[in-house]
Amino acid sequence: MKLRAIAHSRTGDKGNTSNISVIAYEAKHYPFLREQVTAERVKAVLAGVARGAVTRYEMPNVGALNFVIEGALGGGVTRSLALDAHGKSLSSALLDLDLPEPG
């Protein structure tokens, strides 16, 4: 199963830091997301871009996780050489994460 089956996501940017939300469609899947979608896994699936530290913040009130990825934007949105300087498309890469079927 792919993460996108149970969660949606949006990427934001500030300077050279990207943040990617992972939001459960249904509240019952939040504990499963919390268990499966760790900072380490996010760093691994975004290995091509996530060069710096990845920090995870939990928001059980809205069934969401927020990943903050430092050094992800090629030196910063305003000077990056990248085609997607804002890293807007990173959320789509993260939703491709493979997960086991929820129990």
């Binding site: 949606h8 949006r10 934001g12 500030k14 939001i23 913040y57 069934g63 969401a64 903050v68």
Partner: peptide, 14 residues
Amino acid sequence: QTVKEQLLYEIHDP
């Protein structure tokens, strides 16, 4: 869902 995506947009520590 549209509101939650915006709630976390460009947020670091909520």
